[in-house]
Design a protein around this nucleic acid. Structure first.
Lengths: 340, 340
DNA sequence: CTGAAAGCGCTTACAG
DNA sequence: CTGAAAGCGCTTACAG
């Protein structure tokens, strides 16, 4: 590699000062148009690379946004990330990603790294068990935070997520309208707001329909395809013989469908299954999955937008912004057939 | 937020110099052990946050590694990323991720951003059509590059990927040994080394077995579940009535299985299907997918290791490092049954 | 074992 | 419209 080109290199080669070069490269009207043009040409010719660290040290703006989720390999977060990515791209912000895998330490290490790098803000879906001081660590050090997908009690930072309780009631009501009465709830955990809200929504929908709620019909825990697949055994051996399952998310639903079909049942006919999230693959699962859209693209877009607006000075009101879910009826649900 | 704590704040509060503080916080033996201890306690008490930008401006090491792939939502890249992540984690390096979606411009913008941020290195799976000068842009500016998954002709940077030609021949031979003679190849593109090598491996295996190669049995293009799903129609309408499909990857295979089962065929019985990559979900697909392990974890780990070693000064030899694939036989393949 | 001073490459008042 | 100078917060020779 050749010798490092910096502002002063360009300045000397043109007989100008670094101040002028700096302003010109950032299109400042303070510099005459033709001087600006000449400078830009020279910068390109010399292969100048802007040193963001130096600039950021001076301006205390880094152009970096941190994003921390449970796990991007989960397409639910992947779809949110994609929306964030495209929103940040057009504002020429770079994002730094970390999975926390629900480890509070990994999450804190990441927040500290972001602070060290002078990150301009953070978008996070907090790990299970995150203490309040970790939530405020960012803000207290001048780094605005936005929450997505999960909310936390006692925290009033701006939060964007779906209306879980309402969404799951849509799925439950759909099954009830098909004649199902023994409906299991599969997957999810009470340790997240999402898990609690969805279970509550399911319970409420059953009650409203006058169906007795049997807590043994809840098979909690599963959050992945693998988890749903393994839950099939428990589901099929329930003495109440449920004819339908409301699943915590699409991954669990797809895993469950695979599991019950291994056992010789036909999902969508013998057993009705609903998912949650409407992932891209829900539509091409076999059978195509009846599910609830959860607005991942919307969540990501709005969260990124809110953060960028805040960085630009406008202060969006805090609090939870709920995105309205919608039912997507496909082939994995059908009128109730009693199990034999 | 309180007033910014910096080295000089700590120095003044203890009546020491910033040099001593700086050394102590980095555990230098040049500072007396008890002074070091006292300094660390004070730093924590004051809530000191290390300013990496300032340090990096001085040392020209940033602790940042760039990673650019086609798309992390593809679990193949997701699994590689996960291995890179855990390898970088233990060296306390932060990674910055970007998807290029096979857009050469998006990839170049990202490389330039990394250079501006002073990234220490880059791990990339180059976009289709990447020009040579983009490949060398990083190295010429002092940022070492490592390739994964895809190699590029005429580029002798260190590259880590599976032995595609050998791997696909394992799958093809497996089908041949089950009595299949009319075997289609579904998915992939000639625009990547992976696509070319896998098609070539399939052709070679057929030839070696004395089976005539029919170019019309190739249905190229698909690279996702959606793609495989859509390819099912073409596959089923081939006049040669293939009894088996060698798929370009697991996603295509799973999509294809969904597609053929929508059409009333039973994958794994009527139609044998092989995948490639052995993604986590291959084992829980229905039927469980026969596939070829492609060593994503190994690829990611070795690539990260190689980059870290290079940053530490040792110069790993350039050139392609091939990871040996292995056959994983499951339920999606069975002895040939002629199609009616 | 500790300190004074220079410098990494920018940007930003301030002068002119 | 352009320049001289200070300073962002570190680290690193160099002195003592």
């Amino acid at each position: 590699m050749a010798q490092k080109i910096k502002l002063s290199t360009i300045a000397e080669s043109l007989g100008l000062s670094t101040a002028t070069i700096s302003l010109a490269l950032r299109d400042s009207p303070l510099v005459a148009a033709d001087t600006r043009e000449k400078i830009k040409i020279q910068a390109r010719a010399l292969g100048y690379i802007y040193n963001r660290r130096a600039a950021s040290l001076r301006t205390s703006r880094s152009g970096i946004i941190g994003v921390v989720f449970h796990d991007v390999m989960n397409p639910f977060y992947g779809e949110i990330l994609k929306a964030i990515e495209s929103e940040l791209d057009r504002s020429r912000q770079t994002f730094i990603l970390s999975n926390h895998y629900d480890s509070v330490e990994k999450q804190r290490t990441f927040i500290e790294t972001l602070l060290q790098l002078g990150s301009d803000g953070i978008i996070m879906s907090p790990a299970i068990g995150t203490p309040l001081e970790d939530m405020t660590l960012a803000e207290e050090n001048g780094m605005p935070a936005i929450l997505v997908a999960r909310s936390m009690d006692g925290v009033d930072m701006p939060t964007f997520r779906g209306d879980d309780s309402y969404g799951i009631s849509l799925a439950t009501n759909h099954l009830i309208s098909l004649g199902h009465r023994t409906i299991a709830m599969v997957g999810g955990t009470d340790q997240t707001s999402t898990g609690r809200d969805r279970y509550q929504g399911y319970v409420n929908a059953l009650r409203k329909a006058g169906i007795e709620v049997d807590p043994n019909l809840r098979i909690p825990g599963a959050r992945s395809k693998q988890g749903g697949f393994e839950a099939a055994v428990n589901f099929l051996s329930l003495p109440q013989k449920p004819t339908a399952a409301v699943c915590w998310n699409d991954l669990v639903a797809i895993g469950l469908m695979n599991g019950v079909s291994r056992a010789g049942f036909v999902p969508g006919k013998d057993i009705s299954v609903t998912g949650y999230d409407d992932l891209e693959e829900a539509a091409i699962a076999t059978p195509a999955l009846t599910t609830v859209s959860n607005g991942q693209a919307e969540v990501g877009r709005l969260a990124a937008r809110a953060l960028l607006d805040r960085l630009a000075g406008s202060h969006e009101p805090d609090g939870i912004h709920l995105i309205k879910p919608e039912m997507r009826i496909r082939q994995s649900t059908s009128p109730c057939v009693p199990r034999t």
